[in-house]
């Protein structure tokens, strides 16, 4: 059984972009629906932040790779998503057209960017610690668990200064590596509730069709219906992603081939780690 896995936001802009008719169609949709030129990586109208640009780039590449796989005759029996991978996943299961997904990404990204104008936020990638000390570090420093990717790979979310302290503490406690990334908002954490109403209004403004392929959520590992989608997209921004549980649920559901449909290969690497622990 084939699973398409949609990853979250890339952390860096592209070194190079595809140049073929499928990509040009997606780039055209991004210009038309999100006022963003992927090729020049610039805004056509009122500029948004670099983070919104990265979100659009990630979604566009996932849409493009979905088209590419389908053109090669590869289709999923199940779709899974990590973080903002929910947006292209919604297109892949037929719940929204690609253009609306790009538009929705830009609108929600701009809403989140407004939070970053009041305070600087950051994500902290912590590799090597287990969950228990990681949660203690988060609590000590007033930041939040944003991603539980495997037993040893986590992402924290919160204010920039607190994140620097949290990452320093993590290194002191024996983390194998830590890295801080800028972000516009405290993603996957309770403070996102501040803009929940605004995001809810954006997500509720689209007409979702019933998924034609089962779509597994990354919070409770349940299959999402059309009616679930708007509320889920708000809720998932306030709660941590749990990829380890999601991958195990996909395996239990019978998935045997996992294709990462987007930028990078982090999800495949998380899967490899989880599998290596299962085999121990």
């Amino acid at each position: 059984m084939i699973c398409f896995m949609f990853p979250g936001q890339p952390l860096a802009p592209p070194a190079a972009l595809p140049d073929d008719p499928l990509f040009r169609e997606i780039a055209g949709l991004a210009r038309e629906r999100a006022a963003f030129d992927l090729v020049t990586f610039s805004w056509l109208g009122a500029p948004a932040t670099d983070q919104v640009a990265l979100q659009l780039y990630g979604v566009a590449m996932s849409l493009y790779r979905t088209r590419l796989l389908r053109a090669e005759g590869v289709s999923p029996q199940l779709v899974a998503e990590h973080s903002m991978g929910i947006y292209p996943a919604i297109a892949a299961v037929g719940a929204l057209p690609e253009g609306e997904v790009l538009e929705l990404t830009a609108r929600s990204g701009r809403a989140m960017a407004a939070m970053g104008r009041a305070k600087p936020y950051a994500l902290g990638c912590i590799v090597g610690l287990t969950l228990e000390p990681l949660l203690a570090i988060a609590e000590n420093n007033g930041v939040f668990l944003a991603n539980h990717n495997t037993s040893r790979h986590f992402l924290l979310s919160g204010e920039r200064g607190a994140m620097e302290d949290a990452c320093a503490e993590a290194l002191g406690r024996g983390a194998f590596s830590v890295k801080i990334f800028p972000c516009d908002a405290p993603l996957h954490a309770p403070p996102m509730a501040e803009i929940a109403d605004e995001l809810g209004a954006i997500f509720a403004g689209y007409r979702y069709r019933e998924p034609v392929i089962p779509l597994l959520d990354h919070i409770e590992q349940e299959f999402l219906t059309a009616a679930d989608l708007p509320a889920f997209m708000v809720r998932e921004l306030t709660l941590p992603v749990n990829w380890e549980r999601t991958y195990r649920a996909l395996r239990r559901a019978g998935c045997s081939r996992f294709l990462e449909v987007g930028v990078g290969d982090s999800l495949k690497k998380y899967n490899r780690w989880i599998e290596s622990e299962t085999g121990r």
Binding site: V127, F176, S177
Partner: peptide, 11 residues
Amino acid sequence: LDSIDALQLVV
């Protein structure tokens, strides 16, 4: 390789 790979190599 990246930090995810590095931890896999440590193990």
